[in-house]
Design a protein around this nucleic acid. Structure first.
Lengths: 96, 96
DNA sequence: ATAATTTGGTTTATAATATAAACTTGTTTA
DNA sequence: TAAACAAGTTTATATTATAAACCAAATTAT
């Protein structure tokens, strides 16, 4: 009846992150922080989880002497996002 | 940027229940059990939560000597479902 | 110079949540 | 009358989400 929803994406902050990254080449920590309005701790944790699942590629470097983290959606992440979008649509239209 | 997702509805089983109830007048425990393929315990718990939030009206009676539970979406529940559907759409289309 | 503040995060303690296993109450069948 | 079944509920456990506390280095103020 209903397809299972990828638990990694069926969470508000992680879904926000992936949704944002779906439309840009890459984004840095502060961009995601501002757009999602999450706390830094929460954002850090959720980025890590997405990275561990290989949904994100995370790059750490230095920019103007400060640490600088950028994130980019992987193919695997993009596929998962597309599948999630497909799957949840079924739940959203009353007609089952 | 992203609207908050009602945590009561942003959960697979509860969303399934509400989605199913959105298109019928009412449904009984076993109907929901079959459609959602949940365990009885999980279904019972999630129905209770939706009831506590007044998203569902739950009616217990007897049918052929056995307990019989039916659920019906309330106006509040329907509104919440509609709002959830609106809200999550923003996450689903890459374009933020 | 050095103390205080800021930047850009990470770690971890706590609270909240989801889930299935175990239980309950009554009914039917063997 | 014992075993199996119906229709759920309760509760123990595992998982998860979240924010508070922390950290290292850089900058600014005194």
């Amino acid at each position: 009846m209903f397809k299972a929803l990828d638990p990694l994406l069926h969470q508000q902050l992680r879904l926000s992150i992936v949704s944002l990254l779906a439309s840009v080449e890459s984004a840095d920590f502060n961009f995601l922080l501002e757009k999602t309005e999450a706390t830094k701790g929460n954002l850090s944790v959720q980025i890590s989880k997405l990275k561990d699942a290989e949904y994100l590629e995370v790059n750490k470097s230095f920019k103007n002497n400060y640490p600088h983290t950028t994130c980019k959606l992987t193919q695997k992440g993009r596929k998962a996002f597309e599948a999630y979008v497909e799957a949840i649509q079924e739940y959203l239209k009353p007609n089952n």
